[in-house]
């Protein structure tokens, strides 16, 4: 019995292994090696192409490139942090405060908007916030504003939009771990006279750390790589790094420069995620699931 099932398991192994391997090889490993290769290729004055560091060099030479890069990184970290600050009390309310009857209903209410595409949700904000938008309409009707103001196209609105579009990916993992947090731990701390801040800092947050980390990684990655929200809600000079990549590849048709930018973005996101995991002593394969 043992022996025969072993041979069959090898068969099963090949059937499962081959498609997965092909997928990862042809759509993940080789394309990224190609991305790296392309980023070191340049064309010289005579139209001959060869190895060069020029694509990376120009990134540091042109302030607009590295400034956009730094800005994107900084804003992504800020947005991730703000999302976390909003997500914690929301998750806490749903898991620990809401009546058990409305808990399920609130969960569905929470999830439904995120099944709607990012574009539609950003469009909704444009309709609300622009100069001819709904909020301006009501504010002028109520004589709070004398004339409509443009609320779109600034950094604050863009950050709000990024928070909005990526909120769920923080709330869900945190709810996942917070649900299993035993209420009696909080009760015990309360009975012993702990303050709310102490309960949060010493019990809730450490317990929820795996959820917080997986939420933070996903949100950070999505914000860093987002294109629609900064493009449609940010100002004209509020370039996001993905827009630089788009410009190089689609507008200027400079694939080598675009490849270098893409690789830099990938490098930065991996580095920040790596550091965050090291600081909080979490493991990547445990956090992403």
């Amino acid at each position: 019995m043992k022996r025969s099932s072993k041979i069959k398991i090898r068969w099963g192994f090949i059937i499962f292994f081959v498609p997965v391997f092909l997928w990862l090889l042809f759509l993940l490993i080789l394309p990224h090696i190609e991305l790296l290769r392309m980023s070191f290729v340049g064309t010289d004055f005579y139209g001959k192409s060869g190895f060069t560091f020029e694509n990376y060099w120009s990134f540091f030479k042109e302030p607009i490139y590295w400034r956009t890069f730094a800005r994107t990184a900084l804003y992504s970290i800020t947005v991730t942090f703000l999302v976390l600050v909003i997500a914690l009390p929301v998750a806490f309310y749903i898991t620990k405060l809401a009546g058990t009857k409305i808990q399920g209903f609130l969960m569905i209410l929470l999830l439904v908007p995120f099944w709607v595409s990012e574009l539609i949700r950003v469009y909704g904000w444009i309709i609300l916030l622009r100069e001819s938008g709904a909020i301006n309409y009501f504010l002028t009707k109520l004589h709070i504003l004398r004339e409509p103001i443009e609320m779109l196209y600034n950094d604050a609105t863009m950050i709000m939009g990024l928070i909005y579009t990526n909120m769920l990916f923080m709330v869900i993992p945190i709810i996942g771990v917070m649900e299993s947090l035993d209420d009696s731990l909080i009760e015990a701390a309360y009975d012993l006279g702990a303050k709310k801040t102490a309960i949060w800092a010493k019990i809730i947050i450490p317990y929820c750390l795996p959820g917080i980390m997986s939420g933070s990684i996903i949100v950070f990655m999505l914000v860093l790589g987002s294109y629609l929200t900064p493009k449609l809600m940010g100002g004209k000079n509020a370039l996001w790094f993905t827009e630089q990549i788009y410009n190089q590849i689609i507008t200027y048709f400079n694939w080598n420069q675009g490849a270098a930018f893409g690789f830099l973005l990938l490098l930065m996101s991996s580095l920040i995620i790596f550091v965050a995991l090291k600081i909080t002593r979490q493991k990547f394969t445990k956090v992403i699931k």
């Binding site: 759509l27 190609e34 991305l35 294109y227 990549i245 490849a259 893409g262 990938l266 996101s269 992403i288």
Partner: peptide, 18 residues
């Protein structure tokens, strides 16, 4: 798991180039 932390834009351009 890597695609979870690779921005979609990068996946797009690397597959395009490859």
């Amino acid at each position: 798991l890597a695609p979870m932390v690779i921005p979609g834009v990068i996946l797009g351009i690397s597959i395009l180039m490859f």
